[in-house]
């Protein structure tokens, strides 16, 4: 972004990569897949790079409001400093913070989750999926992340993207507003689960495997990690893949 600013240019959209997308090796693949699509379509986008910071989501949900407010203050100062209007992100937690929680603190942006963004690109004909691509005839199930689904009521856009593939979409028993959490939210990602009978991600992965799908589509880097672990726990990692919708699109253009 600093480069755009130095040249006096404005990007069409700021891509908010998020911590997982920046540092987690698995999630980096989602980041690269999404930027490949953006490059292919020819969208002028920027990233904040080293200036990007955690939105503060895990701190806020763990109860550390003070740390959240510090992160929010700094991020909003950076974004407003560059005059950012439009943000796209590959993480529903970042999306929720931008859409719902930064406005009260002076950060007002048009924000899109990457699945909605991809759906619009497909609908506008800017992204054309190859006929009989990598997913032709495969059974796919889709996992609603809590913060995209229940949190913000976005259930259809990711499904529309999946329907653009020539595949069979099989819903899990618990889907849409009744979808079950992967176990990562509320800062659980960063700590061991409390004692219990099983792990939440094991339970959710089992529900996904019950559909008989060979691909579990996700929209959140944390869900992707959790479900991948859950699939491994059932020793199904050779036959069943957990993929972000952006990775699936990138493979098919």
């Amino acid at each position: 972004m600093a480069e755009y600013a130095a040249n006096g240019e404005t990007p069409e959209v700021l891509f908010w990569v998020g911590c997982a997308g920046s540092f987690d090796q698995r999630a980096q693949k989602i980041t690269r897949a999404f930027t490949q699509i953006l490059d292919k379509v020819g969208i002028k986008f920027a990233i904040l790079g080293k200036e990007e910071m955690c939105t503060g989501d895990p701190a806020r949900r763990a109860g550390n409001e003070f740390l959240f407010q510090m992160m929010a203050y700094n991020n909003i100062a950076t974004l407003n400093g560059y005059g950012i209007k439009k943000v796209v992100t590959i993480c529903p937690h970042c999306f929720n913070i931008f859409k719902n929680e930064y406005p009260a603190l002076g950060g007002n942006y048009e924000v899109m989750h990457h699945t909605t963004f991809l759906q619009q690109l497909i609908n506008d004909g800017k992204v054309k999926l190859k006929d009989g691509g990598a997913f032709k005839g495969k059974k796919i199930t889709y996992h609603d992340s809590c913060y995209l689904g229940r949190g913000n009521g976005i259930y259809e856009a990711p499904r529309e993207v999946l329907q653009a593939f020539d595949t069979e979409l099989i819903e899990m028993k618990r889907c849409r507003s009744n979808g079950m959490c992967c176990g990562a939210g509320g800062a659980q990602m960063f700590k061991e689960e409390e004692p219990g009978a099983t792990r939440i991600n094991f339970e959710r992965a089992e529900q996904a495997l019950e559909t008989g799908a060979t691909i579990i589509a996700a929209n959140c880097p944390f869900c992707t990690t959790m479900l991948t672990d859950g699939v491994k726990n059932k020793e199904k990692e050779d036959s069943v893949k957990v993929m972000d919708i952006a990775e699936m699109v990138a493979m098919s253009i």
């Binding site: 809590c146 229940r150 949190g151 079950m180 939210g185 509320g186 659980q188 409390e194 219990g196």
Partner: peptide, 11 residues
Amino acid sequence: RACTSCQACVE
């Protein structure tokens, strides 16, 4: 500590 803030209860 066990809550994932998934909002299923609220929904």
